[in-house]
Amino acid sequence: NQASVVANQLIPINTALTLVMMRAEVVTPMGIPAVDIPRLVSMQVNRAVPLGTTLMPDMVKGYA
């Protein structure tokens, strides 16, 4: 099973992602693959992402 990107903290809307905000976890359903974490750094979320939420492609501006 491939790990997905999960929020390590509450990420407010329009926040630029940093490594500290994300962790890799095997979850269902799968979200953004953990291998993409370096690519996500400095991209912004388009909604508030609660702690423990799996990041989906439509939550990150410019990802999809």
Rank of each mutant, 00 (worst) to 15 (best):
Leu40Asp: 00
Asn1Cys: 04
Thr18Met: 12
Met56Pro: 01
Pro33Cys: 04
Asn46Trp: 10
Met30Leu: 14
Thr18Ile: 04
Met30Ala: 10
Met21Gln: 05
Glu25Val: 15
Arg39Ala: 07
Met59Pro: 00
Thr54Gly: 03
Asn46Val: 13
Ala24Trp: 05
Leu10Met: 12
Met21Ala: 08
Lys61Ala: 13
Leu51Val: 13
Pro29Asn: 04
Val27Asp: 02
Ser4Met: 02
Asn46Pro: 03
Ala7Arg: 02
Gly31Asp: 00
Asn1Asp: 13
Ala64Arg: 03
Ala34Leu: 04
Lys61Asp: 13
Asp58Leu: 06
Met59Asn: 10
Thr28Ile: 10
Leu17Trp: 02
Pro29Asp: 08
Val49Leu: 08
Gly52Cys: 03
Ala24Tyr: 06
Arg39Phe: 11
Leu17Ser: 00
Met21Asp: 07
Asn8Phe: 05
Ala3Gly: 08
Ala7Ser: 14
Val35Asn: 14
Val27Cys: 03
Ile13Ala: 11
Gly31Gln: 02
Val45Tyr: 00
Ser42Glu: 12
Met30Lys: 14
Thr28Tyr: 13
Val27Leu: 07
Gln2His: 11
Lys61Ser: 15
Thr54Asn: 02
Arg39Met: 14
Thr28Gln: 15
Ala3Asp: 07
Thr15Gln: 09
Glu25Leu: 08
Asp36Trp: 05
Ile32Glu: 00
Ala3Pro: 13
Gly62Asn: 14
Ile13Leu: 07
Ile32Pro: 01
Pro57Glu: 10
Val26Lys: 14
Thr53Gln: 08
Leu19Thr: 07
Ala64Phe: 15
Pro33Lys: 10
Ala16Met: 12
Pro12Leu: 09
Val45Ser: 05
Val35Tyr: 13
Gln9Trp: 05
Met22Ser: 00
Ile32Asn: 01
Val45Cys: 03
Arg23Asp: 06
Thr18Glu: 09
Ser42Asn: 07
Gln9His: 13
Asn46Asp: 13
Met21Cys: 02
Thr53Val: 12
Leu55Met: 11
Ala3His: 08
Asn1Arg: 05
Val49His: 02
Leu51Ile: 11
Arg47Cys: 04
Pro50Trp: 08
Ile37Ala: 06
Asn14Trp: 08
Lys61Arg: 09
Asn8Pro: 02
Pro33Thr: 08
Glu25Arg: 05
Ala7Val: 07
Pro50Val: 09
Gln44Leu: 11
Asn14Ser: 09
Asn14Ile: 02
Ala64Trp: 05
Leu55Tyr: 02
Ala16Ser: 11
Val27Tyr: 02
Val20Ile: 10
Gly62Cys: 04
Gln9Phe: 10
Lys61Trp: 12
Leu10Ala: 09
Thr18Ala: 07
Leu55Ala: 00
Gln44Lys: 14
Thr54Asp: 00
Leu19Val: 13
Ile11Met: 07
Met21Trp: 03
Tyr63Cys: 03
Pro29Thr: 09
Gln9Lys: 09
Met21Pro: 00
Gln2Ser: 06
Val45Asn: 03
Pro57Ser: 09
Met43Gly: 04
Thr28Gly: 08
Val6Pro: 00
Gln9Val: 05
Gly62Asp: 14
Val41Thr: 06
Thr15His: 09
Val26Trp: 12
Ala7Phe: 01
Val6Glu: 02
Gly31Lys: 01
Thr53Met: 13
Val27Pro: 01
Val60Met: 08
Arg47Pro: 03
Thr53Pro: 00
Leu19Asp: 06
Ala3Ile: 07
Thr54Trp: 02
Thr28Ala: 09
Asn1Ser: 15
Glu25Pro: 00
Ala34Phe: 11
Pro50Leu: 10
Pro29Cys: 03
Ser4Thr: 11
Pro38Cys: 04
Leu51Trp: 11
Val41Cys: 03
Ala3Met: 09
Arg23His: 12
Ala64Val: 12
Tyr63Gly: 05
Ala34His: 09
Met59Gln: 11
Val41Ile: 12
Thr18Tyr: 03
Gly52Gln: 05
Ser42Ile: 03
Ala24Lys: 13
Gln9Ile: 13
Pro33Asp: 07
Leu40Lys: 01
Pro50Asp: 12
Ala16Tyr: 08
Val60Asp: 01
Val41Glu: 10
Met30Ile: 14
Leu51Ala: 14
Arg23Met: 07
Gly52His: 07
Asn1Glu: 13
Leu10Asp: 15
Ala24Thr: 15
Leu40Gly: 00
Leu10Trp: 11
Val6Thr: 07
Pro12Met: 15
Ile11Asp: 00
Leu19His: 11
Pro38Thr: 13
Met30Val: 11
Val60Tyr: 01
Leu17Cys: 01
Pro38Ile: 14
Ile13Gly: 12
Val35Phe: 11
Asn14Asp: 07
Val35Lys: 15
Asn46Arg: 12
Asn14Leu: 06
Ala16Cys: 03
Leu51Gly: 14
Val27Trp: 03
Ile37Glu: 02
Val5Glu: 01
Leu51Phe: 13
Ala16Phe: 11
Met21Asn: 07
Ala34Gln: 08
Met21Ser: 10
Val60Glu: 01
Leu10Val: 12
Ile11Lys: 00
Ile11Ser: 00
Pro38Glu: 12
Leu17Gln: 00
Met22His: 00
Met59Thr: 07
Pro38Asn: 14
Ile37Arg: 09
Pro38Gln: 13
Ala34Tyr: 06
Met22Val: 15
Val35Pro: 15
Tyr63Lys: 02
Met43Tyr: 07
Ala48Val: 08
Ile37Trp: 02
Ala64Tyr: 05
Asn8Lys: 12
Leu55Glu: 01
Asn1Met: 15
Asn46Leu: 15
Ala24Ser: 12
Leu10Lys: 12
Met59Arg: 03
Gln9Leu: 10
Thr28Asp: 11
Thr18Gly: 08
Val49Met: 08
Thr18Asn: 05
Lys61Phe: 13
Met56Leu: 15
Ile13Arg: 09
Thr28Met: 11
Val20Ser: 15
Gln44Val: 15
Arg47Thr: 14
Gln44Arg: 10
Asp36Ser: 08
Met22Gln: 01
Asn14Lys: 14
Asn8Ala: 15
Asn8His: 09
Met59Gly: 03
Tyr63Gln: 04
Val35Ile: 13
Val26Leu: 13
Tyr63Leu: 06
Leu10Tyr: 10
Met59Ala: 11
Ala24Ile: 15
Pro50Thr: 08
Thr28Lys: 15
Val41Ser: 04
Ala34Asp: 09
Val6Met: 12
Ala7Cys: 03
Arg39Thr: 14
Gln9Arg: 09
Met59Ser: 13
Asn14Met: 07
Ala16His: 06
Val5Pro: 01
Pro33Gln: 15
Pro57Trp: 08
Pro50Arg: 10
Ser4Lys: 02
Ile11Arg: 01
Leu55Gln: 00
Asp58Ile: 06
Thr18Gln: 11
Met22Tyr: 02
Ile13Met: 13
Met30Phe: 13
Leu51Gln: 08
Val26Asp: 14
Leu55Cys: 02
Val35Trp: 07
Ala24Asp: 07
Asp58His: 09
Ala48Glu: 10
Val6Cys: 04
Gly31Phe: 02
Met59Tyr: 14
Thr18Asp: 12
Lys61Cys: 03
Gly31Trp: 02
Ala24Leu: 04
Met43Arg: 10
Asp36Gln: 08
Gly52Lys: 05
Val27Glu: 03
Ala24Pro: 07
Thr18Val: 04
Pro29Phe: 06
Leu10Asn: 13
Pro57Met: 07
Ala24Arg: 07
Leu19Trp: 06
Ile37Asp: 01
Leu40Trp: 02
Pro12Gln: 08
Pro57Cys: 04
Ala34Ser: 13
Tyr63Met: 05
Gly62Val: 05
Met59Val: 15
Gly62Arg: 07
Leu55Val: 11
Met56Lys: 06
Ile13Trp: 15
Ala16Gln: 04
Leu55Trp: 01
Ser4Ile: 01
Met43Pro: 00
Ala3Glu: 12
Ala64Leu: 12
Ile13Ser: 13
Thr18Ser: 15
Ala7Gln: 01
Asn1Phe: 08
Pro29Val: 06
Gly52Ile: 02
Met30Trp: 12
Pro33Ile: 06
Gly52Asp: 09
Asp36Val: 09
Val26Asn: 12
Val35Thr: 15
Arg47Phe: 08
Gln44Met: 14
Met22Leu: 15
Pro38Ala: 09
Asn8Arg: 06
Tyr63Ser: 04
Met21Lys: 04
Ile13Asn: 10
Asn14Tyr: 10
Asn8Thr: 14
Gln44Trp: 13
Val60Ala: 02
Met22Asn: 00
Lys61Glu: 14
Val27Gly: 03
Pro38Met: 08
Thr15Glu: 14
Arg23Ile: 13
Glu25Phe: 07
Ala7Ile: 05
Met56Arg: 13
Met21Phe: 04
Lys61Leu: 15
Ser4Gln: 02
Met56Ile: 11
Tyr63His: 06
Val5Asp: 02
Val60Ser: 01
Met56Gln: 15
Ala3Leu: 12
Leu40His: 01
Ile11Cys: 03
Val41Lys: 06
Gln44Ser: 14
Ala7Lys: 01
Thr28Glu: 08
Thr28Asn: 06
Leu17Thr: 00
Pro29Ile: 10
Gln44Asp: 14
Ile32Lys: 01
Leu10Glu: 12
Met22Glu: 00
Thr54His: 03
Ala48Met: 11
Lys61Thr: 10
Ala48Tyr: 10
Ile13Val: 12
Thr15Gly: 15
Pro57Gln: 07
Val26Thr: 05
Leu40Glu: 01
Leu10His: 15
Val49Ser: 02
Ala3Cys: 04
Val45Lys: 00
Val26Gln: 12
Thr18Phe: 04
Leu10Pro: 14
Pro33Asn: 14
